[in-house]
Amino acid sequence: MKISLITVCYNSAETIEKTIVSVASQTYENIEYIIIDGNSKDNTLEIIQKYNNQISKWISEPDKGLYDAMNKGVNLATGDLIGILNSDDTFDSDSVIEKIANFHKENNIDASVGNIIQHRADGKIVRVYTSKYWNSEKLRIGFMPPHPSIFFKRELFNEYGGYNLGFKIGADYELITRFFLKNKIVWKYSGITTTAMLVGGLSSSGASSYKLITKEIQKALSMNGIDFSPLKIKMRFLWKIIGFLRK
């Protein structure tokens, strides 16, 4: 089983080396590693070229944003599975991809969902983001599994399409809604903690981002013909607190 890993980057010189080393250190051998750079102006390309032997394919050219770059990576991928590793993230351990491969070999599924940890720049863990209690119906109230923890069969992108460029920060939500809820793909919780993610990502930075992602969640559900309550989506932070207290 070949697993394609895609990293999208732009001016990522401060973090990209740790990400590349994290992939190169994996115990699983059948990895196709693809880097899509958005024509960086710092020394990101020098770092990529330093690890040229550990990278299967890379391109550097202007793009239309994060999700356009992800689509480029998906189009270049030839693996059985596709996973996304952001340019400021690392795998939680050197055996993550081996565990993912074994899980998919043992289960007849289209996708697996797992867990990630979120940490500050100093390494302090601030959150364990788990999919253990998640199910696809929760997309209706604004909850998705952590995107970096999902490994998809590549053929899903051929059948159902890639990331929708009509979204600024919610194209991953729309894609997951389209795959998991609209088209009801077969998935399973892996229990694997895949990724150590640096906090402060595109969709987790302040009130303005919360307002925008709320709007885009509703847009994602509407365009896929999914019934939902706008009020429940707006109040999803409250549902998180209630769920935490119940646990």
Rank of each mutant, 00 (worst) to 15 (best):
F157Y: 08
T194F: 15
E137V: 04
S131G: 05
E174Y: 03
N164F: 02
K182E: 14
K234R: 11
N71I: 10
I150C: 06
D68V: 06
G161R: 14
G166C: 12
E106A: 09
S112P: 13
I35T: 06
K188S: 07
K232V: 01
T7L: 14
M144W: 04
A24V: 10
I48R: 01
K2V: 08
M144H: 00
T214E: 03
E14P: 08
Y67S: 05
L202A: 09
I213P: 02
D37Q: 12
N52Q: 12
T7G: 11
S203D: 15
T130M: 14
R120L: 14
V8D: 01
N71G: 12
F237T: 07
F143K: 02
L81C: 03
G83M: 03
Y133W: 09
I116D: 01
D89H: 04
K57E: 15
L181G: 02
S22E: 11
E106T: 05
I169T: 08
D37G: 03
L81D: 00
K168Q: 09
K182F: 09
V186A: 15
F157V: 09
K57D: 15
G123F: 10
L231D: 15
Y129N: 10
D37V: 02
M197V: 05
S203P: 14
L181S: 03
T78L: 14
N39G: 13
V23M: 13
V23P: 10
K64L: 10
E106F: 06
I116S: 00
I117N: 12
I48E: 02
L5H: 05
A220N: 02
T214Y: 00
N224I: 08
S222V: 06
L81P: 05
S60H: 10
K153H: 07
A220R: 00
L212F: 00
S131P: 07
F157G: 11
Y51W: 13
N75T: 06
M223A: 07
A13E: 15
G123A: 09
K188A: 10
D88K: 06
H147E: 11
E17P: 03
S93H: 09
L5M: 09
R127C: 13
T193F: 07
E17F: 07
S149P: 04
F228H: 05
A101S: 11
A69T: 08
L181Y: 02
I217L: 12
A121M: 11
G191E: 07
M197A: 09
Y189F: 08
K64C: 12
S204V: 07
L156Q: 01
S22H: 04
T194H: 14
G201W: 00
L139A: 09
S93V: 03
G206N: 05
Y160V: 06
Y173S: 00
I233S: 01
L5G: 04
